[in-house]
Design a protein around this nucleic acid. Sequence first.
RNA 1: GCCGGCGUAGCUCAAUUGGAAGAGCAUCGCACUUGUAAUGCGAAGGUUGGGGGUUCGAUUCCCUCCGCCGGCUCCA
Length: 642
Amino acid sequence: MPSAPIELSLQDGGRVTVAPGSSARQALIAAGLDLADGALLASIDGEVVELDRPLVHGGELKAITFAEPRGAEAYRHTASHVMAQAVKRIYPDAVLAIGPAIEDGFYYDFGLDETIRPDDLPRIEEEMARIVAEDLSLVRRELPASEAKALFESRGESYKVELIEDLGQDVVTIYEQGEFADLCRGPHLSSTGAVAAFKLLSTAGAYWRGDENREMLQRIYGTAFDTPDALEEYIHNREEAEKRDHRRLGPELELFSIRDEIGPGLVIYHPRGAVLRTVIEDYLKQEHARRGYELVISPHIMRKSVWETSGHLDMQYPMYFFEIEGQGYGIKPMNCPAHIAIYKSRTRGHHELPIRYFELGTVYRHERSGVLHGLLRVRGFTQDDAHIFCTMEQAADEIDGAIRFAFEAQRTFGFTEFKIALSTRPDHSVGNEEDWSKATEVLKSALESNGLDYFIDEGEGVFYGPKIDVKLRDAIGRLWQGPTIQFDFNLPRRFEMSYVGPDNSEHTPVMIHRTVLGSMERYMGILIEHYAGAFPAWLAPVQVEILPIADRHVEHAEGLARKLRSRSVRVQVNDERETTGNKIRKAWKMKVPYMIVVGDREVESQSVSVRSLAGRDERGVDLERFTAELLDEIASRRSCEV
RNA sequence: GCCGGCGUAGCUCAAUUGGAAGAGCAUCGCACUUGUAAUGCGAAGGUUGGGGGUUCGAUUCCCUCCGCCGGCUCCA
């Protein structure tokens, strides 16, 4: 405890001095920072301090509000303690597990024989409101581990005891509020009364420590915000996100369906979805060819022995196996072995490298039933898969090219914001340190030379090599798994791949796996949600719908359709006998980007009336002008914001 | 796979304590020939996810299987 006055500097350049032993709250008040502005915590030189803890040293003083991630996190963490306290009051037998803040909210896990059902959440919320009204102080205490253990043992909190044991610390911290005590590192708000707006969202099962061999706990998810309005907005955004759900929009727009009678996790593409997929695939084939990739095609099933060689059998990769005339076969869960087989079909010399094989490879994986999710997690899917075989010296250029390719493609499809992770060597891995560090360096410098921001996910690489994962931020701010680029030090050795080097001896090539989009299924799911089903013209399954006013205009409409089709525009004529209003409504619901109305006036003047999803509404447009603009829009693959 | 919830017409949803399965949209037929987000009338559509049980009687209660949803875990 300092005995001298504590010197604090402020952001605005001011300085204050407070008496030794002053709390952060007192310092903020002394500094004239209004606590009513929503200070939840304070920071000294960037280090978080709770409001009611005495300052141990001086430095730059700042208030932390909800607007800051650290503020929101403490706020929600406190909310999770409030929820846990409420649960303990209602269910005295509930045993506390863990309850952290997460993105957008918090959860708490409980061990409890009695089932907490969604219907019970309002009751828990009422109790939470009571605890907030009680305005209980959160008191932080440091205890010797043995004492803390005794405390939680006496309360029957066996999970907390286990946590303390595993922490292996001499001293642990606990937070108390009223009758409730929790093992917790903090930081927390100073009082339960500070939690202004919260809502419990759902219940779920979760394994203790995420281990499926351990007991199943009951988890309650909730969220909390600093104002009721912010909470309201969050709930509203959730509802909006639901409207974009590809599982709803996909069947509605007649893109695809996943049907019980066909099988779970297996996608059937309806005509419109098949068009969309074909457009994407054509784009990919064209772009790959342009960048020196060679298109290859491999079978859906391969001998079981191949999967022994690859190691998939040993690691019990979730595959489907069966027999043909007594011989074991597996349905391919990936395309690599076939690409390697093509490479190995003859002796390769270093002059040939790099070799880049690309395949739209359809693979099947036995995903467990509980994890299936629309198009995002399926059992059969088609990867835009490529394998690059090269020398370590060539790897830098290859990675650079793959990165440029991936980002150019993502931008073409309308994504402009990314979160990029570089995963480094995990504990259990194959290959030598030199290769790993070289490869990691190659990935790093390629990201940097392309001006891409990334973060390093330490030790999170796959066992066979370092990798780059790209997440895409969609129109409403959500992140989706996108391209990956990975080194593989495993398969080239397992399959005994080689090339003859300039020294006339055999060398093992470097293998790089990479995708540009990921899989057709998942990417279509992401696109549907990103555009809320209203695709840019180049992707739209139907680009133009022609709406004749009356029967006598159908022939003219068909003529226009033929003209547009001859220019490769995807056109449909609605020749049903309905009112024009209804035809517009239907085309609108199917999110057709352009609607063309033709009646007497248009036939007479050889023009069209154009309406677009994007908001255009224009009468008497010259057909040639419309066609030219449309063709330009399609050819440029523009993403118009709808 | 595990925990919890759910499953009624193609879709969205009704059906009192266990007592005759219903509506809107979509579909089909007829009429209407239409000018920018729903024309009118009519018809058809169901072993209430499958199987079993309790009961005089089951959409309703119980068991089981399948599937979906929210999670755990994993990944394209």
